[in-house]
C-alpha cells in the first residue's frame, strides 16, 4: 500500500507541476507613459485556455486589447481559464472582475457562453462581451461572432488553385461545431474551384480533450500523414498545434495554410516559406472596435457578425505566394459578399 501511495504521489506531483509549467502567465499592466492618454475605463479580460501567448486565438484578442490601451489609455486586468475547469470557475472569474469594478468585461471563447448568461443577469449594470457565441441575449451583453466559413472558403479555393496533386488536407484542433465551420467553408471553397478535388479531414482530439489546440506534435503527425498520402497543401484550424503542421510542410517541401492571424509573420522564420496564406479571423479588430465604442461612451449589445464584407475575416498575402491568384480569390470574395455564393457552416 505504501509503495502504491508513494508512486502515486510522485506521479501526481509530476503531473501537477508539468501542467503548471505548460502555460505562460500573461499579466500586462498596460503602458504608463507620461503623455499617454488616460481613461477611467477598466477592462476585464477573461481568456480561454492558453491565454495570452498562445500565438493564436487568445493572442489575437490580446492584440486588440493592447491597441485599445495604447490609444485610449484604458486600464486592464487579465485572467485565463484552466484546462478542464468547472463551470463555477468561469462564473467566478467574471464575478471577481465585476466585483473589483471592471467594466466592460470581455470573455474570449464560446466556453463562457453559459457563465456570461448567468453573471450578466446578476450584474445588470456591468457590460459584457463574448467572442464566438451568439446564444446569449441580454441588454448588457455584446456577442462578437465571425463568419469563419467565408474566410475558410477563400483559402480552400486558394488551395484548390495551387495544388498539383488535386489532393489537399484539413487539420482541425478539436472537433467542435466551431472548428467544423472552418472545415465546411474550406471544403466548399476547394470544391467550387475543382469539384473532383480530394479533401482529407482529420481532427486532433475530441471534447472534452482540448489539447488538440496546443499540441504541435499531434499537428505534425497528422500533417505528415496527409503529405505522405499524396496531399500537397494542408490547412490547419488547430491553434498552437499549427506549428507542427508548418514543420511537417517545411520538412516535406509542401504547403501549409495558417489560421486566425497572418502566421507568415508570427511563425518561426524557418517555416515561413511553407506558409501559402493564412485565413484571417480578426478577433483583434472585433475587440478593438468594441472597446473604441465603449471609449465613446456607448456600450453596444446584441450580435455583431464580422464577415468578409467588414473585413472581419479574410486571407493574407504575406510572402507573395498567392499573388498570381488574388484576382480569382477577390472575385469569389465579391460573390460571397453579394450573396451569389452561400457558404455552408457545417460539413
Amino acid at each position: 500500500m505504501r509503495k502504491t501511495a508513494r508512486f502515486a504521489a510522485v506521479a501526481m506531483a509530476a503531473a501537477l507541476t508539468l501542467s503548471a509549467c505548460g502555460s505562460d502567465e500573461g499579466t500586462d499592466e498596460g503602458t504608463d507613459n507620461g503623455d499617454a492618454p488616460t481613461s477611467d475605463i477598466k477592462v476585464g479580460m477573461a481568456y480561454d485556455v492558453g491565454g495570452r501567448g498562445d500565438q493564436s486565438f487568445n493572442d489575437s484578442a490580446a492584440a486588440g486589447l493592447d491597441q485599445a490601451i495604447d490609444e485610449f489609455g484604458m486600464e486592464s486586468q487579465e485572467s485565463e481559464a484552466e484546462d478542464g475547469e468547472a463551470e463555477s470557475a468561469r462564473e467566478e472569474r467574471l464575478r471577481t472582475f465585476a466585483d473589483a469594478g471592471y467594466d466592460p468585461i470581455i470573455a474570449v471563447g464560446f466556453a463562457y457562453a453559459a457563465s456570461i448568461g448567468k453573471v450578466a443577469e446578476e450584474y445588470p449594470d456591468v457590460h459584457f462581451a463574448i467572442i464566438d457565441d451568439s446564444s446569449v441575449e441580454a441588454d448588457n451583453v455584446a456577442s462578437l461572432v465571425f463568419a469563419e466559413e467565408q474566410g475558410s472558403f477563400l483559402v480552400g479555393a486558394a488551395a484548390a488553385l495551387k495544388t498539383e496533386t488535386d489532393q489537399i488536407g484539413f487539420v482541425g484542433g478539436v472537433e467542435t461545431p466551431l472548428i467544423q465551420k472552418f472545415e465546411a467553408g474550406y471544403v466548399a471553397g476547394a470544391e467550387s474551384v475543382n469539384p473532383d478535388i480530394e479533401v482529407d479531414v482529420t481532427y486532433l482530439t475530441q471534447v472534452p480533450d482540448f489539447s488538440g489546440f496546443a499540441d504541435p506534435a499531434k499537428g505534425k503527425t497528422a500533417a505528415e500523414g496527409m503529405f505522405d498520402n499524396g496531399a500537397d497543401i494542408v490547412y490547419h484550424a488547430a491553434g498552437g498545434s499549427g506549428g507542427g503542421v508548418f514543420e511537417a510542410a517545411s520538412e516535406s517541401g509542401n504547403w501549409a495554410i495558417g489560421v486566425d492571424s497572418d502566421q507568415y509573420n508570427t511563425a518561426d522564420p524557418s517555416v515561413q516559406d511553407s506558409i501559402l496564406t493564412s485565413m484571417l479571423k480578426n478577433v483583434n479588430v472585433a475587440v478593438y472596435e468594441y472597446l473604441s465604442q465603449v471609449n465613446d461612451g456607448d456600450f453596444p449589445s446584441g450580435v455583431t457578425t464580422y464577415d468578409l464584407e467588414v473585413d472581419g475575416v479574410g486571407y493574407s498575402t504575406s510572402g507573395g505566394f498567392v499573388d498570381d491568384i488574388v484576382e480569382q480569390l477577390d472575385e469569389l470574395k465579391q460573390q460571397i459578399i453579394d450573396g451569389e455564393i452561400s457558404v455552408p457552416t457545417a460539413p
Binding site: Q77, E78, S79, T96
Partner: peptide, 14 residues
C-alpha cells in the same frame, strides 16, 4: 482562490 489571485494580485494561477 485562483481567480482572485490572478485578477486582484496579478499572479499566475499556476
Amino acid at each position: 482562490q485562483s481567480n482572485p489571485l490572478q485578477i486582484l494580485v496579478g499572479v499566475s494561477p499556476d
